[in-house]
Design a protein around this nucleic acid. Structure first.
Lengths: 334, 334
DNA sequence: TAAAAGTGAGTAATCGTTAACCCAAGGAAA
DNA sequence: TTTCCTTGGGTTAACGATTACTCACTTTTA
């Protein structure tokens, strides 16, 4: 039922290869008139290229396969995909994502993706982590996005957590804040690195006394529900303690959201009494808080874009780890 | 470089067709021993089926193509995809999504998807709306998700906005609330329908006096930034007016977030003074507000699942419009 | 004891596209 | 005039998996 090149060839009275050359081969030798006539017939018949057939010769489909490690719920995930998609489209490629929902292992998802013969494959994590890829699959994956391969067998793109924490902390310090508390997310790689950046910036500014405190937002590394949140009690304790903070840095925007509520409860004004800053830039939240939240935006889009560039240029260097900078989004909470 | 059936055939000393039958054709006649031996060799060689090659005979790739009308930013979009994916996977199909980012028209995106020869195509909208599909493409699309086709040429799956508004309003009334204000999103189909459901429930309860008010959250149909929000002033006016509401129904969770802040500003307690309820169940926001927000969850997952079922069973009825129920998520804001 | 039925597997055609090769006609250079 | 190159286009063979058809051999049935 679908139209093929031979249908067009029959109608135009030429061979199939001439049609193929006219429609796809930019440099195929033929008269402009022939080419034009063929194009018109193709249009008229509603011809749509069959990429599966083309891929038989080419050896691959014009696809970038993406294996996503978890259920894609956050808007971050879609930012990665958008970055990939934008760069891929420039090379007439499409992005084909598959998540390892449930108990499925990397191997089976990878095979599922490979059945479609994508040109290249990326592995994307939903939050910054270290991933151990089984030996036999390390070769199939070209780039790790938002994660590092445990044995450095694959090129990895990760956010520069240390740098971001350093930058936002310095920003608070430059704004005149001295007693900065950091309510961090415990048990996460991002949290550890951000703590390092925070401490480094505080030390450099000579502020590593009692004013610099790092507190966990939750007890047990899982930040699922506000039921287990330690944020309200931390804020209450901080504000009634001997050294009241003049700034609170938050592990992410959702923590910041709770900090806002807790500060309001104790009657503190943002940013006059306490400045609040955070990480992520989850736009729905950050721009809609009152006052709007100053936060470090994760470079998800940039990671996606760079991943596509690397994959399509085939210039991946196994083991290389590239750290991409966050972007400071200044609103009015500082 | 990649392994094909003939490589396995050569190694096993049988024909290609025998290998094909052993690996894929469940009912092909051959001895169990031969079948087992072939499977082992395939495993050993790391054989991965080439779906493009198979599709040459089958006529289609095991894909459900999805044309998404806008940039996929909301978590809602991924819920639709997850619904589709779950149902598709049961039939060994994958979901292939493509967004019409930027100025590209439906036709070109549709063609881009069709080049991959998907088994079926769905069109998904990011918010409930009416979409006019050009005549020549109406036949290519099997199901409209979260939108209606203007000329009813395609099966459409949409959320039951009227029913949801009726349900949440009745829920507030049953909770003893009488003066319910509705801060709605203007200029949206969802808003119009929800207003109808709201008014209907209020009328049925005999509460259509001055207590029932519908106010717009923003002036001009675009709800992008809190800068243009009318919510704070509405809440202030409501709370200082002659008929103070004992409940505020919000157009969505982000509006509710602003209502929370505004209520706190005027010293009103939730839910003691004013109950707050909303639509969407944007989990990050709704579960993390203080107190957690009672809201009507959109049936995105269900729409995705049903879409896949309809497409794969080929039981789409052009023009049929199916309304799917929201789900009431009870938290503690009522 | 044939003939029929069943079993296990091979042959070859096919899907739509591309690419390596071939060919004929006409013009330019020797 | 002969040779060579360019132009415009045709032939044919892949690519990998599936499937209708065939065939040889064995087992059952009349």
């Amino acid at each position: 039922m679908t139209i093929s090149l031979s249908d067009i060839a029959a109608r135009a009275g030429v061979s199939v290869k001439t049609v193929s050359g006219a429609l796809h081969g930019g440099s195929a030798r033929m008269s402009d008139e022939t080419r034009q006539r063929i194009k018109e017939i193709a249009e008229e018949l509603g011809y749509v290229t069959n990429l599966a057939a083309r891929s038989m010769r080419q050896g691959w489909m014009p696809l970038i396969g993406v294996v996503a490690d978890e259920l894609i719920t956050s808007p971050f995930a879609t930012e990665i995909i958008r970055g990939l998609d934008g760069a891929a489209r420039a090379s007439d490629m499409a992005v084909f994502a598959m998540t390892m929902s449930g108990r499925r292992d990397v191997g089976s998802v990878l095979e599922e993706v490979r059945r479609f013969r994508p040109r290249a494959i990326a592995y994307a994590a939903m939050y910054h982590k270290v991933v151990s890829l089984p030996e036999e699959f390390a070769g199939a994956v070209g780039v790790m996005i938002n994660c590092r391969e445990a044995n450095d067998r694959v090129t990895s793109l990760v956010p520069d957590e240390v740098g971001a924490a350093h930058e936002i902390t310095s920003y608070l310090i430059e704004a005149g804040r001295r007693n900065i508390a950091f309510i961090n997310l415990p048990g996460l790689l991002a949290g550890e690195l951000r703590e390092a950046g925070f401490r480094q910036a505080m030390t450099e500014a000579g502020l590593d006394g009692t004013g610099a405190r790092v507190l966990p937002a939750v007890r047990n590394a899982i930040y699922s529900d506000r039921a287990h949140s330690l944020v309200p009690s931390h804020v209450t304790a901080l504000m009634s303690g001997p050294v009241r903070p003049d700034a609170i840095l938050c592990g992410n925007d959702r923590v910041a959201m709770e900090v806002y509520a807790a500060l309001r409860r104790v009657g503190a004004e943002i940013p006059d009494d306490v400045a609040v800053a955070s990480f992520d830039n989850q736009v729905d939240i950050a721009s809609r808080l009152d006052p709007p939240l100053t936060t470090m935006a994760l470079p998800h889009r940039a990671m996606g874009r760079l991943a596509a560039d690397i994959l399509l240029a085939e210039k991946a260097v196994p083991g290389e780890v590239r750290k991409l900078p966050f972007q400071l989004v200044e609103r009015s909470s500082v």
